[in-house]
């Protein structure tokens, strides 16, 4: 009884803290905290999407940055055609309305995930890791070579997408939009994980043979999970392009896939909010270490090594174990 109340209470407290964050940050004189929190929310969405296939489904995808980048470039390319006033391929008009760009980004990354997933899921193990990486690299090089859309330098989006009745130039508004989307996203993910579908995905990780013996088509379930996960990453990428007002090939570089994986493992693989915690830990670590020393990657590498080698289940599990020990 006590335990079942603890979690909702914790979540409510977290939500209130997140809603109050910009006001508190401004009052305390840490205005930069709001931007930091926006990035955490966006990467949290991306990492949680990756975690859905990686943690729940056991599919180690090393190419999820591809979907992140596609989301970002959808926003960027639509904006470019909107600002230049010339339609894409001659008949698709550009736009700067978020109510259009976000769904388009989600659908496009879903389609790309369907293609990549359909091909990649025919393999498994190391080959799966490498083929997802290969597809992401292909897209990376494709966008590097597209001079029309900035090539190497990326695409500058002069103004964030508009939402009706909101002033999207205000950093706080952008934060609240991201927060609202993140809350919605995690609610959907929670429903999904606890649904029959989610259980099948976990079952597939534990034993594909067993699931096949029950009569479930493993390949199709995995593919749908992969598509959903890709769509989530696309959503995060579209938000990131709006937040940074920039889309670049770096969004789909393989190190970005690595970073998303780090967030997942830092927070705890196969937990609902672990990736969000992981994203927070990663981003805060990155900015704190970077403010201390130019050589922050050294610290990050050491911490990563420690977490992988000595903690089973990331920061969340570590916290739970420490609490368990002191109690």
């Amino acid at each position: 009884m006590e335990k079942s109340l603890k979690r909702p209470a914790l979540l409510a407290a977290l939500l209130i803290a997140l809603i109050a964050l910009p006001t508190v940050a401004d009052a305390a004189g840490f205005a930069a905290l709001t931007s930091l929190a926006t990035r955490v929310l966006i990467y949290g969405i991306a990492a949680a999407s990756l975690n859905f296939v990686l943690g729940y489904g056991g599919m180690v995808s090393f190419g999820h940055a591809a979907f992140f980048g596609i989301g970002g470039y959808t926003v960027g390319i639509l904006y470019q055609h909107y600002s230049l006033g010339e339609p894409l391929f001659g008949f698709i008009p550009g736009t700067n309305q978020m109510l259009i760009t976000l769904p388009v980004a989600v659908v496009l990354s879903g389609i790309m995930a369907a293609i990549i997933g359909a091909l990649s899921l025919r393999t498994g193990g190391v080959q799966f890791i490498m083929i997802t990486l290969a597809f992401a690299q292909m897209l990376f090089f494709l966008f590097v070579s597209l001079k029309t859309y900035g090539g190497d330098d990326g695409l500058i989006i002069r103004r964030a997408n508009e939402l009706p009745w909101l002033n999207m130039r205000d950093k706080h508004t952008v934060y609240y939009v991201c927060l609202a989307i993140a809350v919605l996203f995690f609610a959907v993910l929670w429903r999904l994980v606890n649904s029959r579908f989610g259980n099948v995905i976990v079952g597939l990780r534990q034993s594909e043979k067993r699931m096949a013996a029950i009569g479930l088509p493993a390949y199709r379930y995995k593919l749908v999970a992969f598509i959903i996960s890709g769509m989530g990453c696309g959503l995060a990428g579209a938000l990131m392009a709006n937040f940074l007002r920039f889309a670049s090939p770096d969004m789909m570089h393989w190190t970005k896939s690595g970073e998303l994986m780090i967030m997942v493992i830092l927070g705890g693989v196969g937990t609902l909010f672990g990736p969000l915690i992981g994203a927070a830990v990663f981003i805060v670590l990155e900015s704190v270490l970077a403010s201390w020393t130019e050589n922050w990657q050294l610290g990050l590498g050491l911490i990563l090594l420690f977490v992988v080698l000595y903690t089973q289940g990331g920061v969340q599990a570590l916290g739970a174990r420490l609490v368990g020990r002191s109690a």
Partner: peptide, 26 residues
């Protein structure tokens, strides 16, 4: 890392990349 799953191996050695790159830069 022997016997651990691929995810742990990828991340631990990814950490090594960060460490070595930074050490060489220093």
């Amino acid at each position: 890392l022997y016997g651990r799953d691929h995810l742990d191996q990828v991340l631990a050695t990814f950490g090594l990349i960060l460490i070595f790159n930074q050490a060489i830069t220093m």
